[in-house]
Amino acid sequence: MDHPQIENERILDRYLVGQLSDEEEALFEEHLFACAECLEAVRWGEELRQGLRAVATEDAAKAAVAVGFWAWLRQRSSAQWAGALGFGITVVALGVVLVSTVLRQRAEIDHLRAAASAPPVEAPSGPSFDAPLGGLAVVALGTVRDAGGEPTEIRLDLDRKALLLSLELPTSTAERYQVTLSDAAGKVRWRGDDLEPTPYDTIPVVLPVSFLEPGEYQVEVRALGAPAEEPGLTMTFRVAGPP
């Protein structure tokens, strides 16, 4: 493999995202032994990709903190809500972009407003990261929170191109998980094997928004090595189209 080919066929960028054929990949990797310039370029490209992942993971963790807060809040008595509301605002102010309009959370917010007779809390309406990961929507899905209720509704009406689903595990009991995403017809749309949870007991999954047409989806999370008869954790969400 030579440089005109690497340049013309955008080999380096395609390599970084795993889009080369097996043959192209083998030839390019062989080239890396002889070419310090390309080796440096892929190293820094890989570093940058890891940096983007690190940002996304941090943001997913923040989202999980914010959503976990609502689950915690549900267990509080109404007398404690007024104080808790203040905490809620602080959590939101951390800069989490929760574009999901979780219906049950919305009901809780209404309830809270009445109970606390505090000024209404507005959900953040746009990016508020220190330096936003442009185009990335972060949505946390929890097994506990979603049990038996309405599926989480995700409205993709903001200018987002990728969706980061932060799958909250009740407690991290396994080292690896398998995640399956199915549509309403039960067709498997995507599966990730051998996924590692984050230290925050979440599994972050990024999907291009274009991948999710409006409709209902189910996410099943199974611990690797668990007996076949043991049910996995199930989370549902609904993608609403643009208004």
């Binding site: 749309r189 995507w190 599966r191 972050p204 999954v205």
Partner: peptide, 19 residues
């Protein structure tokens, strides 16, 4: 990690060092 994606999808593993 292996992915059996039917379409272009990425999964974000925590960078190993963070664990």
């Amino acid at each position: 990690r292996s992915f059996s994606a039917e379409t272009s999808v990425a999964v974000l593993p925590e960078p190993p060092d963070a664990r």
